[in-house]
Design a protein around this nucleic acid. Structure first.
Lengths: 212, 212
DNA sequence: ATCCTACTGCACCAGAAGTGCAGTTTTGCC
DNA sequence: GGCAAAACTGCACTTCTGGTGCAGTAGGAT
Protein backbone atom coordinates (compact mmCIF):
# COMPACT_ATOMS: atom_id res chain seq x y z
CA UNK A 1 0.00 0.00 0.00
CA UNK A 2 2.92 2.35 0.64
CA UNK A 3 3.46 4.32 -2.57
CA UNK A 4 7.03 4.20 -3.70
CA UNK A 5 6.12 4.70 -7.41
CA UNK A 6 4.72 8.16 -7.94
CA UNK A 7 5.23 8.52 -11.68
CA UNK A 8 2.41 7.02 -13.76
CA UNK A 9 -0.33 7.15 -11.16
CA UNK A 10 0.48 10.76 -10.30
CA UNK A 11 0.61 11.68 -13.96
CA UNK A 12 -2.80 10.14 -14.51
CA UNK A 13 -4.11 12.17 -11.57
CA UNK A 14 -2.55 15.36 -12.93
CA UNK A 15 -4.09 14.89 -16.34
CA UNK A 16 -7.44 13.89 -14.88
CA UNK A 17 -7.50 16.84 -12.49
CA UNK A 18 -6.80 19.32 -15.26
CA UNK A 19 -9.59 17.78 -17.34
CA UNK A 20 -12.08 17.64 -14.50
CA UNK A 21 -11.47 21.24 -13.45
CA UNK A 22 -11.71 22.49 -17.01
CA UNK A 23 -14.66 20.44 -18.21
CA UNK A 24 -16.21 18.50 -15.38
CA UNK A 25 -15.83 14.91 -14.31
CA UNK A 26 -18.25 13.38 -16.79
CA UNK A 27 -16.74 15.21 -19.73
CA UNK A 28 -13.28 13.91 -18.91
CA UNK A 29 -13.12 10.49 -20.50
CA UNK A 30 -10.72 7.75 -19.53
CA UNK A 31 -9.97 7.49 -23.23
CA UNK A 32 -8.60 11.02 -23.35
CA UNK A 33 -6.67 10.64 -20.10
CA UNK A 34 -4.85 7.55 -21.32
CA UNK A 35 -4.20 9.03 -24.75
CA UNK A 36 -2.60 12.09 -23.14
CA UNK A 37 -0.66 9.91 -20.72
CA UNK A 38 0.44 7.59 -23.51
CA UNK A 39 -0.77 4.53 -21.67
CA UNK A 40 -3.13 1.69 -22.54
CA UNK A 41 -6.63 1.36 -21.16
CA UNK A 42 -5.65 -1.63 -19.07
CA UNK A 43 -2.73 0.38 -17.75
CA UNK A 44 -5.26 2.84 -16.42
CA UNK A 45 -7.45 0.16 -14.88
CA UNK A 46 -4.38 -1.31 -13.24
CA UNK A 47 -4.14 1.88 -11.16
CA UNK A 48 -7.83 2.60 -10.64
CA UNK A 49 -10.49 -0.07 -10.45
CA UNK A 50 -13.03 2.22 -12.09
CA UNK A 51 -13.78 5.88 -12.68
CA UNK A 52 -15.17 6.23 -9.19
CA UNK A 53 -11.85 5.24 -7.67
CA UNK A 54 -10.17 7.83 -9.87
CA UNK A 55 -12.61 10.37 -8.43
CA UNK A 56 -11.79 9.29 -4.90
CA UNK A 57 -8.03 9.53 -5.43
CA UNK A 58 -8.41 12.86 -7.19
CA UNK A 59 -10.48 14.35 -4.38
CA UNK A 60 -8.25 12.96 -1.63
CA UNK A 61 -5.14 14.40 -3.23
CA UNK A 62 -6.87 17.74 -3.80
CA UNK A 63 -8.00 17.97 -0.18
CA UNK A 64 -4.53 17.14 1.12
CA UNK A 65 -3.06 19.90 -1.03
CA UNK A 66 -5.66 22.44 0.12
CA UNK A 67 -5.08 21.54 3.76
CA UNK A 68 -1.36 22.09 3.33
CA UNK A 69 -1.99 25.40 1.57
CA UNK A 70 -4.28 26.71 4.31
CA UNK A 71 -1.85 25.52 7.00
CA UNK A 72 0.89 27.41 5.23
CA UNK A 73 -1.02 30.64 4.68
CA UNK A 74 -2.55 30.98 8.12
CA UNK A 75 0.65 29.69 9.71
CA UNK A 76 2.63 32.44 8.00
CA UNK A 77 -0.05 34.96 8.97
CA UNK A 78 0.31 33.90 12.58
CA UNK A 79 4.03 34.36 12.40
CA UNK A 80 3.53 37.88 11.05
CA UNK A 81 1.19 38.87 13.90
CA UNK A 82 0.58 37.18 17.21
CA UNK A 83 -2.89 38.65 17.70
CA UNK A 84 -5.63 36.25 16.54
CA UNK A 85 -7.73 38.93 14.82
CA UNK A 86 -4.88 40.59 13.02
CA UNK A 87 -3.25 37.35 11.96
CA UNK A 88 -6.62 36.20 10.63
CA UNK A 89 -7.01 39.43 8.67
CA UNK A 90 -3.48 39.00 7.33
CA UNK A 91 -4.31 35.42 6.38
CA UNK A 92 -7.36 36.55 4.40
CA UNK A 93 -5.23 39.17 2.67
CA UNK A 94 -2.58 36.59 1.80
CA UNK A 95 -5.27 34.24 0.52
CA UNK A 96 -6.77 37.00 -1.59
CA UNK A 97 -3.36 37.90 -2.99
CA UNK A 98 -2.60 34.30 -3.80
CA UNK A 99 -5.90 34.02 -5.68
CA UNK A 100 -5.22 37.27 -7.52
CA UNK A 101 -1.80 36.00 -8.56
CA UNK A 102 -3.09 32.86 -10.24
CA UNK A 103 -2.35 33.60 -13.91
CA UNK A 104 -5.56 32.15 -15.37
CA UNK A 105 -7.67 32.50 -12.25
CA UNK A 106 -8.54 29.68 -9.90
CA UNK A 107 -8.88 26.51 -11.95
CA UNK A 108 -11.90 25.41 -9.92
CA UNK A 109 -12.67 23.56 -6.72
CA UNK A 110 -13.05 19.80 -6.91
CA UNK A 111 -15.40 19.89 -3.92
CA UNK A 112 -17.82 22.10 -5.86
CA UNK A 113 -17.39 20.06 -9.03
CA UNK A 114 -18.18 16.91 -7.11
CA UNK A 115 -21.09 18.55 -5.29
CA UNK A 116 -22.71 19.65 -8.50
CA UNK A 117 -22.11 16.10 -9.08
CA UNK A 118 -22.31 14.84 -12.46
CA UNK A 119 -22.67 11.14 -12.42
CA UNK A 120 -23.26 10.48 -8.73
CA UNK A 121 -20.22 8.98 -7.06
CA UNK A 122 -20.44 6.31 -4.39
CA UNK A 123 -20.92 6.92 -0.65
CA UNK A 124 -17.17 7.00 -0.03
CA UNK A 125 -16.51 9.91 -2.32
CA UNK A 126 -19.58 11.84 -1.20
CA UNK A 127 -18.58 11.37 2.44
CA UNK A 128 -15.07 12.58 1.67
CA UNK A 129 -16.54 15.64 0.02
CA UNK A 130 -18.85 16.35 2.94
CA UNK A 131 -16.06 15.96 5.48
CA UNK A 132 -13.85 18.36 3.56
CA UNK A 133 -16.33 21.18 4.17
CA UNK A 134 -16.72 20.21 7.82
CA UNK A 135 -12.94 20.23 8.29
CA UNK A 136 -12.74 23.72 6.80
CA UNK A 137 -15.53 24.78 9.14
CA UNK A 138 -13.67 23.43 12.18
CA UNK A 139 -10.44 25.11 11.12
CA UNK A 140 -11.96 28.55 10.77
CA UNK A 141 -14.27 28.19 13.76
CA UNK A 142 -11.25 27.58 15.98
CA UNK A 143 -9.64 30.77 14.73
CA UNK A 144 -12.84 32.79 15.12
CA UNK A 145 -13.41 31.56 18.67
CA UNK A 146 -9.95 32.74 19.55
CA UNK A 147 -10.75 36.12 18.04
CA UNK A 148 -14.13 36.41 19.73
CA UNK A 149 -12.53 35.66 23.10
CA UNK A 150 -10.57 38.91 22.82
CA UNK A 151 -12.79 41.03 20.58
CA UNK A 152 -16.53 40.84 21.28
CA UNK A 153 -18.32 40.82 17.91
CA UNK A 154 -20.30 43.95 17.14
CA UNK A 155 -23.22 42.10 15.60
CA UNK A 156 -24.80 39.03 17.11
CA UNK A 157 -23.42 36.47 14.67
CA UNK A 158 -23.11 32.72 14.97
CA UNK A 159 -19.40 31.91 14.79
CA UNK A 160 -20.11 28.59 13.11
CA UNK A 161 -21.93 30.38 10.26
CA UNK A 162 -19.13 32.90 10.10
CA UNK A 163 -16.63 30.04 9.84
CA UNK A 164 -18.61 28.67 6.90
CA UNK A 165 -18.52 32.12 5.34
CA UNK A 166 -14.85 31.71 4.44
CA UNK A 167 -15.51 28.51 2.47
CA UNK A 168 -18.67 30.09 1.14
CA UNK A 169 -16.81 33.10 -0.19
CA UNK A 170 -14.20 30.96 -1.88
CA UNK A 171 -16.70 28.59 -3.46
CA UNK A 172 -18.96 31.39 -4.63
CA UNK A 173 -16.00 33.42 -5.85
CA UNK A 174 -14.71 30.55 -7.93
CA UNK A 175 -18.11 30.03 -9.54
CA UNK A 176 -18.53 33.73 -10.34
CA UNK A 177 -14.96 34.15 -11.56
CA UNK A 178 -15.27 31.19 -13.88
CA UNK A 179 -18.77 32.11 -15.02
CA UNK A 180 -17.94 35.65 -16.14
CA UNK A 181 -14.29 35.00 -16.92
CA UNK A 182 -13.05 37.64 -14.45
CA UNK A 183 -10.53 35.90 -12.19
CA UNK A 184 -10.20 38.90 -9.87
CA UNK A 185 -13.74 38.45 -8.52
CA UNK A 186 -12.58 35.74 -6.13
CA UNK A 187 -9.82 37.95 -4.72
CA UNK A 188 -12.23 40.88 -4.35
CA UNK A 189 -14.77 38.77 -2.53
CA UNK A 190 -12.14 37.62 -0.07
CA UNK A 191 -11.30 41.26 0.63
CA UNK A 192 -14.97 42.00 1.24
CA UNK A 193 -15.09 39.11 3.67
CA UNK A 194 -12.01 40.61 5.34
CA UNK A 195 -13.79 43.96 5.52
CA UNK A 196 -16.73 42.28 7.24
CA UNK A 197 -14.51 40.53 9.77
CA UNK A 198 -12.83 43.87 10.50
CA UNK A 199 -16.13 45.65 10.96
CA UNK A 200 -17.35 42.85 13.18
CA UNK A 201 -14.41 42.50 15.53
CA UNK A 202 -12.12 45.51 15.27
CA UNK A 203 -12.63 48.10 17.99
CA UNK A 204 -14.47 51.22 16.72
CA UNK A 205 -11.76 53.84 17.09
CA UNK A 206 -9.29 51.87 14.96
CA UNK A 207 -11.73 51.83 12.06
CA UNK A 208 -11.23 55.47 11.27
CA UNK A 209 -7.63 54.66 10.32
CA UNK A 210 -6.96 53.92 6.63
CA UNK A 211 -7.94 50.46 5.54
CA UNK A 212 -4.50 48.98 4.79
CA UNK B 1 -41.89 30.54 -33.18
CA UNK B 2 -44.63 31.64 -30.79
CA UNK B 3 -45.19 28.74 -28.37
CA UNK B 4 -48.83 27.77 -28.15
CA UNK B 5 -48.12 24.15 -27.09
CA UNK B 6 -46.46 24.11 -23.70
CA UNK B 7 -47.18 20.56 -22.61
CA UNK B 8 -44.58 18.11 -23.90
CA UNK B 9 -41.70 20.52 -24.31
CA UNK B 10 -42.26 21.99 -20.85
CA UNK B 11 -42.53 18.54 -19.35
CA UNK B 12 -39.24 17.56 -20.95
CA UNK B 13 -37.66 20.69 -19.48
CA UNK B 14 -39.10 19.94 -16.03
CA UNK B 15 -37.76 16.41 -16.03
CA UNK B 16 -34.40 17.48 -17.43
CA UNK B 17 -34.05 20.29 -14.90
CA UNK B 18 -34.74 17.98 -11.99
CA UNK B 19 -32.16 15.54 -13.31
CA UNK B 20 -29.53 18.16 -14.02
CA UNK B 21 -29.87 19.78 -10.61
CA UNK B 22 -29.73 16.45 -8.83
CA UNK B 23 -26.96 14.78 -10.81
CA UNK B 24 -25.40 17.19 -13.27
CA UNK B 25 -25.95 17.72 -16.96
CA UNK B 26 -23.75 14.91 -18.20
CA UNK B 27 -25.28 12.38 -15.84
CA UNK B 28 -28.79 13.18 -17.06
CA UNK B 29 -29.24 11.05 -20.15
CA UNK B 30 -31.74 11.74 -22.87
CA UNK B 31 -32.73 8.10 -22.51
CA UNK B 32 -33.89 8.63 -18.93
CA UNK B 33 -35.64 11.90 -19.74
CA UNK B 34 -37.72 10.33 -22.49
CA UNK B 35 -38.45 7.23 -20.46
CA UNK B 36 -39.77 9.38 -17.60
CA UNK B 37 -41.71 11.53 -20.07
CA UNK B 38 -43.10 8.48 -21.84
CA UNK B 39 -42.00 9.74 -25.20
CA UNK B 40 -39.84 8.30 -27.98
CA UNK B 41 -36.29 9.41 -28.67
CA UNK B 42 -37.34 11.04 -31.90
CA UNK B 43 -40.06 12.82 -30.02
CA UNK B 44 -37.32 14.40 -27.94
CA UNK B 45 -35.24 15.37 -30.95
CA UNK B 46 -38.30 16.92 -32.51
CA UNK B 47 -38.26 19.50 -29.68
CA UNK B 48 -34.49 19.91 -29.26
CA UNK B 49 -32.00 19.54 -32.07
CA UNK B 50 -29.42 18.10 -29.69
CA UNK B 51 -28.46 18.02 -26.02
CA UNK B 52 -26.87 21.46 -26.30
CA UNK B 53 -30.16 23.00 -27.34
CA UNK B 54 -31.78 21.34 -24.35
CA UNK B 55 -29.10 22.99 -22.19
CA UNK B 56 -29.81 26.37 -23.77
CA UNK B 57 -33.56 26.11 -23.25
CA UNK B 58 -33.08 24.86 -19.71
CA UNK B 59 -30.78 27.73 -18.79
CA UNK B 60 -32.94 30.36 -20.48
CA UNK B 61 -36.04 29.20 -18.65
CA UNK B 62 -34.15 29.02 -15.35
CA UNK B 63 -32.81 32.56 -15.74
CA UNK B 64 -36.25 33.93 -16.60
CA UNK B 65 -37.67 32.32 -13.47
CA UNK B 66 -34.88 33.66 -11.27
CA UNK B 67 -35.32 37.16 -12.68
CA UNK B 68 -39.01 37.04 -11.90
CA UNK B 69 -38.31 35.76 -8.40
CA UNK B 70 -35.81 38.53 -7.64
CA UNK B 71 -38.15 41.14 -9.10
CA UNK B 72 -40.87 39.84 -6.84
CA UNK B 73 -38.82 39.67 -3.65
CA UNK B 74 -37.10 43.03 -3.92
CA UNK B 75 -40.27 44.58 -5.28
CA UNK B 76 -42.19 43.43 -2.22
CA UNK B 77 -39.33 44.60 -0.01
CA UNK B 78 -39.56 48.03 -1.58
CA UNK B 79 -43.27 48.14 -0.92
CA UNK B 80 -42.63 47.30 2.74
CA UNK B 81 -40.10 50.10 3.17
CA UNK B 82 -39.43 53.11 0.98
CA UNK B 83 -35.86 53.61 2.18
CA UNK B 84 -33.32 51.95 -0.14
CA UNK B 85 -31.17 50.52 2.66
CA UNK B 86 -34.01 49.14 4.71
CA UNK B 87 -35.86 47.72 1.75
CA UNK B 88 -32.64 46.04 0.65
CA UNK B 89 -32.16 44.55 4.12
CA UNK B 90 -35.77 43.38 4.07
CA UNK B 91 -35.18 41.87 0.64
CA UNK B 92 -32.19 39.89 1.91
CA UNK B 93 -34.24 38.70 4.86
CA UNK B 94 -37.08 37.62 2.57
CA UNK B 95 -34.59 35.85 0.32
CA UNK B 96 -33.04 34.10 3.30
CA UNK B 97 -36.46 33.04 4.57
CA UNK B 98 -37.45 31.75 1.17
CA UNK B 99 -34.28 29.66 1.01
CA UNK B 100 -34.85 28.37 4.54
CA UNK B 101 -38.38 27.35 3.61
CA UNK B 102 -37.35 25.15 0.71
CA UNK B 103 -38.24 21.69 2.03
CA UNK B 104 -35.19 19.85 0.69
CA UNK B 105 -32.92 22.85 0.45
CA UNK B 106 -32.09 24.71 -2.72
CA UNK B 107 -32.05 22.20 -5.55
CA UNK B 108 -28.99 23.87 -7.10
CA UNK B 109 -28.18 26.69 -9.45
CA UNK B 110 -28.02 25.92 -13.14
CA UNK B 111 -25.52 28.73 -13.64
CA UNK B 112 -23.08 27.02 -11.28
CA UNK B 113 -23.80 23.61 -12.78
CA UNK B 114 -23.09 24.98 -16.22
CA UNK B 115 -20.01 26.86 -15.04
CA UNK B 116 -18.50 23.75 -13.54
CA UNK B 117 -19.35 22.68 -16.91
CA UNK B 118 -19.39 19.12 -17.56
CA UNK B 119 -19.43 18.51 -21.25
CA UNK B 120 -18.59 21.97 -22.61
CA UNK B 121 -21.56 23.68 -24.17
CA UNK B 122 -21.35 25.92 -27.22
CA UNK B 123 -20.64 29.66 -27.22
CA UNK B 124 -24.34 30.52 -27.04
CA UNK B 125 -24.94 28.74 -23.79
CA UNK B 126 -21.70 29.95 -22.21
CA UNK B 127 -22.53 33.53 -23.18
CA UNK B 128 -26.01 33.16 -21.71
CA UNK B 129 -24.45 31.93 -18.49
CA UNK B 130 -21.96 34.77 -18.36
CA UNK B 131 -24.62 37.39 -18.99
CA UNK B 132 -26.78 35.99 -16.23
CA UNK B 133 -24.13 36.86 -13.65
CA UNK B 134 -23.61 40.31 -15.19
CA UNK B 135 -27.35 40.98 -15.05
CA UNK B 136 -27.42 40.05 -11.36
CA UNK B 137 -24.46 42.37 -10.83
CA UNK B 138 -26.23 45.27 -12.53
CA UNK B 139 -29.41 44.66 -10.54
CA UNK B 140 -27.72 44.74 -7.16
CA UNK B 141 -25.30 47.51 -8.10
CA UNK B 142 -28.24 49.79 -8.88
CA UNK B 143 -29.72 49.12 -5.48
CA UNK B 144 -26.40 49.62 -3.69
CA UNK B 145 -25.72 52.91 -5.47
CA UNK B 146 -29.06 54.16 -4.28
CA UNK B 147 -28.16 53.13 -0.75
CA UNK B 148 -24.69 54.65 -0.88
CA UNK B 149 -26.17 57.95 -2.05
CA UNK B 150 -27.96 58.27 1.29
CA UNK B 151 -25.72 56.27 3.62
CA UNK B 152 -21.98 56.70 3.13
CA UNK B 153 -20.35 53.26 3.53
CA UNK B 154 -18.23 52.87 6.66
CA UNK B 155 -15.50 50.93 4.90
CA UNK B 156 -14.05 51.86 1.56
CA UNK B 157 -15.67 49.13 -0.51
CA UNK B 158 -16.18 48.89 -4.25
CA UNK B 159 -19.93 48.78 -4.82
CA UNK B 160 -19.50 46.58 -7.88
CA UNK B 161 -17.72 43.95 -5.77
CA UNK B 162 -20.37 44.33 -3.12
CA UNK B 163 -23.04 43.77 -5.78
CA UNK B 164 -21.28 40.56 -6.79
CA UNK B 165 -21.25 39.53 -3.14
CA UNK B 166 -24.97 38.79 -3.24
CA UNK B 167 -24.61 36.33 -6.12
CA UNK B 168 -21.42 35.08 -4.51
CA UNK B 169 -23.17 34.32 -1.25
CA UNK B 170 -25.99 32.49 -2.98
CA UNK B 171 -23.70 30.42 -5.20
CA UNK B 172 -21.34 29.56 -2.36
CA UNK B 173 -24.23 28.83 -0.02
CA UNK B 174 -25.80 26.43 -2.47
CA UNK B 175 -22.52 24.55 -2.91
CA UNK B 176 -21.93 24.30 0.85
CA UNK B 177 -25.53 23.36 1.63
CA UNK B 178 -25.50 20.62 -0.95
CA UNK B 179 -22.01 19.42 -0.04
CA UNK B 180 -22.69 18.89 3.66
CA UNK B 181 -26.41 18.23 3.32
CA UNK B 182 -27.38 21.14 5.59
CA UNK B 183 -29.89 23.25 3.67
CA UNK B 184 -29.91 26.02 6.29
CA UNK B 185 -26.35 27.08 5.46
CA UNK B 186 -27.54 29.10 2.47
CA UNK B 187 -30.10 30.98 4.57
CA UNK B 188 -27.50 31.64 7.28
CA UNK B 189 -25.00 32.98 4.80
CA UNK B 190 -27.58 35.38 3.41
CA UNK B 191 -28.16 36.67 6.94
CA UNK B 192 -24.43 37.18 7.40
CA UNK B 193 -24.37 39.15 4.17
CA UNK B 194 -27.26 41.18 5.55
CA UNK B 195 -25.31 41.76 8.74
CA UNK B 196 -22.37 43.04 6.68
CA UNK B 197 -24.57 45.40 4.68
CA UNK B 198 -26.02 46.71 7.93
CA UNK B 199 -22.60 47.25 9.48
CA UNK B 200 -21.43 48.96 6.32
CA UNK B 201 -24.26 51.38 5.76
CA UNK B 202 -26.39 51.70 8.89
CA UNK B 203 -25.58 54.74 11.00
CA UNK B 204 -23.60 53.86 14.16
CA UNK B 205 -26.13 54.75 16.86
CA UNK B 206 -28.80 52.45 15.43
CA UNK B 207 -26.43 49.52 15.72
CA UNK B 208 -26.66 49.34 19.47
CA UNK B 209 -30.33 48.43 19.07
CA UNK B 210 -31.05 44.68 18.92
CA UNK B 211 -30.46 43.11 15.54
CA UNK B 212 -33.45 42.61 13.30
C1' DA C 1 -58.60 16.48 -48.89
C1' DT C 2 -54.61 17.86 -47.38
C1' DC C 3 -51.11 20.13 -44.93
C1' DC C 4 -48.84 20.91 -40.62
C1' DT C 5 -47.58 19.66 -35.93
C1' DA C 6 -46.26 16.31 -33.07
C1' DC C 7 -44.97 12.65 -32.74
C1' DT C 8 -43.74 6.63 -33.12
C1' DG C 9 -40.76 2.80 -34.62
C1' DC C 10 -36.84 0.83 -36.37
C1' DA C 11 -32.20 0.56 -37.84
C1' DC C 12 -27.84 2.04 -37.38
C1' DC C 13 -23.24 4.46 -35.95
C1' DA C 14 -19.58 6.13 -32.86
C1' DG C 15 -17.62 6.90 -28.39
C1' DA C 16 -17.15 5.69 -23.57
C1' DA C 17 -17.09 2.62 -19.52
C1' DG C 18 -15.87 -1.56 -18.36
C1' DT C 19 -14.54 -6.86 -18.36
C1' DG C 20 -11.58 -10.74 -19.33
C1' DC C 21 -7.63 -12.92 -20.53
C1' DA C 22 -3.20 -13.83 -22.28
C1' DG C 23 1.12 -12.13 -22.72
C1' DT C 24 5.33 -8.89 -22.00
C1' DT C 25 8.49 -5.55 -19.97
C1' DT C 26 10.44 -3.38 -15.87
C1' DT C 27 11.86 -3.38 -11.14
C1' DG C 28 13.55 -4.57 -6.89
C1' DC C 29 15.48 -8.06 -4.13
C1' DC C 30 18.18 -12.12 -2.86
C1' DG D 1 22.22 -13.42 -12.64
C1' DG D 2 17.73 -15.26 -11.53
C1' DC D 3 13.11 -14.81 -10.08
C1' DA D 4 8.87 -12.94 -8.64
C1' DA D 5 5.99 -9.32 -8.41
C1' DA D 6 4.64 -4.87 -10.33
C1' DA D 7 3.41 -2.44 -14.16
C1' DC D 8 1.96 -2.69 -17.84
C1' DT D 9 0.28 -3.95 -23.60
C1' DG D 10 -3.05 -5.87 -26.95
C1' DC D 11 -7.19 -7.67 -28.36
C1' DA D 12 -11.82 -8.88 -28.20
C1' DC D 13 -16.23 -8.15 -26.53
C1' DT D 14 -20.50 -5.94 -23.93
C1' DT D 15 -23.57 -2.24 -22.60
C1' DC D 16 -25.12 2.38 -22.50
C1' DT D 17 -25.62 6.88 -24.47
C1' DG D 18 -25.80 10.52 -27.91
C1' DG D 19 -27.04 11.17 -32.30
C1' DT D 20 -28.65 10.41 -37.42
C1' DG D 21 -31.84 8.94 -40.99
C1' DC D 22 -35.92 7.56 -42.80
C1' DA D 23 -40.57 6.04 -43.19
C1' DG D 24 -44.94 6.35 -41.30
C1' DT D 25 -49.15 8.14 -38.64
C1' DA D 26 -52.90 10.48 -35.61
C1' DG D 27 -55.30 14.63 -35.10
C1' DG D 28 -56.46 19.40 -35.69
C1' DA D 29 -56.70 23.61 -38.77
C1' DT D 30 -57.59 25.52 -43.46
Amino acid sequence: MAQTKPSTRERLLDIAEAGVLAKGFGATSIEEIISEAGISKNGFFYHFRDKNELARALLQRYLDTEEALLDDIFGRARELHGDPLHSFLIGLKLLSEMMADLPNGHPGCLVATFTYSERMFDRDVRELNRNAVLIWRARFLKMLEEIAATYPPRDDVDLRSLADMISNTVEGGIVLSKAVGQPQILAEQLLLLRSYVRLLFEPVQTQVAPAN
